[in-house]
Amino acid sequence: MTLARYIHPRTTALAPVFGRSPWLGLESDINRLFETALGDFAAPVFEHRFPVDLYEDKDNNYVRAELPGLTRDDISLEMVEGYLTINGDRKVTDDDGKVVETISLNRSIAVPDAVVADKITAAFEHGVLTVTLPKREEAKPKKITIAVN
């Protein structure tokens, strides 16, 4: 069983306008070239690093981390001096479900100070961790109406 690096006609960015384009073959050849050369670079790295996203809205900051294959019990969160640390243990199992290796993952994310540290909540669903960090009242955007005389 091997990785199919390329399947013949799948994407046609230069879509043929009149039935088919003579460049179609050339384009897919170029695509295949890049696919073979860069294919493994484009694959997400998953051994020791995991990707993190930061979002905000007017009430909260959000941190989303992709941790596929971990369970809730494998993840722990810490908030120390403005840094949110995500710790996780990825357990590599063999076919019988026996743990053969544990890879420990951790990452610290600088969080703006204006966060209520004891009201942080986290949810884990489908391998994605979402941490909600509520903003302090004074950090929320305020609307001030100024009378013009």
Partner: peptide, 19 residues
């Protein structure tokens, strides 16, 4: 309402093809 401040993940779908 969410504004992305920093992103490392992509929105792309996953596709794995094995022969």
């Amino acid at each position: 309402e969410w504004t992305a401040l920093y992103r490392e993940t992509s929105r792309a779908h996953f596709e794995l093809v094995l022969r």
